[in-house]
Design a protein around this nucleic acid. Structure first.
Lengths: 237, 237
DNA sequence: ACCTGAACACCGTTCAAGT
DNA sequence: ACCTGAACACCGTTCAAGT
């Protein structure tokens, strides 16, 4: 209640009258990065831009539009990222990792991508994956399903990362103690009923989300090659 | 708006005074199944149960607790589903498919599972997957990552299904016309820029979510065998 | 054309008061 | 112990009124 009075005298908004859709979206991204999805309210946005609601709704349809466009803005940089690798496998890993890192830097896009998985930006993503699968000689009929599988996996990880970020933002505990808590909690599970999870608890300490994500990508890549190999009957063992 | 007046006279609530946590959660599930996540408001719940807010908050911590417990209630039936198959692969497919079908029947759990992927019910899920991977001779070190990969994939699909259901609930168009619209939209994309997606448009008509999901599971299973077969990882970067 | 901000129609949640 | 429902503190969104 008292925080807005202080800022109006402290640093006057230089922007004289130039409100634009681009400025609104960039400001929304700043708020989202700073305080998470919960922090982006129309009220916070009007204060930050020192304007009224109508001004925002004049450039943006509604909050959904705002969230979607902000996500597009972040993702675009990833999809149109570095050029083609020599090895399609390496390119696929790089592409997936680019999205992973983007979600890691802006966890809120994980939620948004899961909410609207048919956005045009993801079409670009599909397209690039499809081409790389083509380069890997995945037959045309299987390409669509294979690309979808990989996208679903990436989006699943993205949503989980967003959930973890949300959880960590809620409590004051940092990442290390959070993992430690989970580990002790898992270790306390009945070993008879949860032998696997119980055994995994010890690994949780040195757990690396990014590395695990890459392992998953490699599993799918290996599976896709196997799938493609099946078309011509060829026994391997 | 007019539907609540009819029912109060049609069938009087037999429950004289027996409000319980279980009844609240089951009623919440009914509302969620009937009208989606948007339909579950505390107000709707009090009306349906013909009670006050305090009564509900006496049995349930908050709305998050309600949503989480409702999801648990639905998932529990899936995880403790049919017994062990002879073939671990078949068992894994069955387990994954069980979750897929549960999300298909109750799309709102897809959102909730993505929001809270560390729920105890998912630990049971992890445990069963881990044991089946063990049966498939996946080495102990790789088991944790492999199980995580599969869960992430399944959750990714779950979130997407929930998103699609939400989209379909919003508009009046049914599934067929929705797919047809998407197909024509994809077909209109510039073939030069989107050759893969453009080509995939024709396949969209006969698209089967459930079948595609299973293809993904099979890709994963094939990848697991390949992973397990190669003891030394390949060099990259 | 672009902006302002009071007002509206909702939320989830609380809490003094009842039985 | 269990329930009631007015009231509170928020939301996103609208819209008559200003420039």
């Amino acid at each position: 209640m008292e925080k807005k009075a202080a800022k109006s005298s402290a640093r006057a908004p230089r922007r004289t009258r130039g409100l634009s859709r681009e400025l609104i979206i960039q400001t929304a991204i700043e708020i989202l990065d700073g305080g998470g999805e919960k922090a982006l309210t129309l009220r916070a946005l009007t204060e930050r831009l020192s304007t009224g609601y109508g001004a925002i709704y004049h450039h943006v349809a509604d909050k959904g539009d705002l969230l979607a466009t902000a996500t597009d803005s972040v993702i675009t940089g990833v999809v149109s990222g570095p050029g083609a690798d020599a090895d399609p496998r390496a390119a696929l890993r790089r592409l997936a990792l680019g999205l992973f890192d983007a979600v890691d830097a802006h966890p809120w896009i994980g939620t948004e991508l899961s909410r609207q998985p048919w956005r045009p930006v993801l079409l670009d993503f599909y397209e690039r994956i499809g081409r790389l699968l083509e380069a890997l000689d995945v037959p045309q009929e299987a390409r669509f399903d294979a690309a979808g599988t990989l996208v679903n996996y990436v989006l699943g990880v993205a949503a989980q990362n967003a959930a973890h970020a949300r959880l960590r933002a809620g409590s004051t505990t940092d990442r290390e103690t959070f993992l430690a808590n989970a580990a002790t909690q898992w270790a306390q599970l009945a070993p008879r009923r949860y032998p696997i999870v119980h055994a995994a608890a010890s690994q949780l300490g040195e757990h690396d989300d990014r590395a695990q994500f890459l392992v998953g990508v490699d599993i799918f890549l290996a599976g896709i090659s196997a799938l493609h190999r099946q078309t011509s009957p060829e026994v391997l063992e």
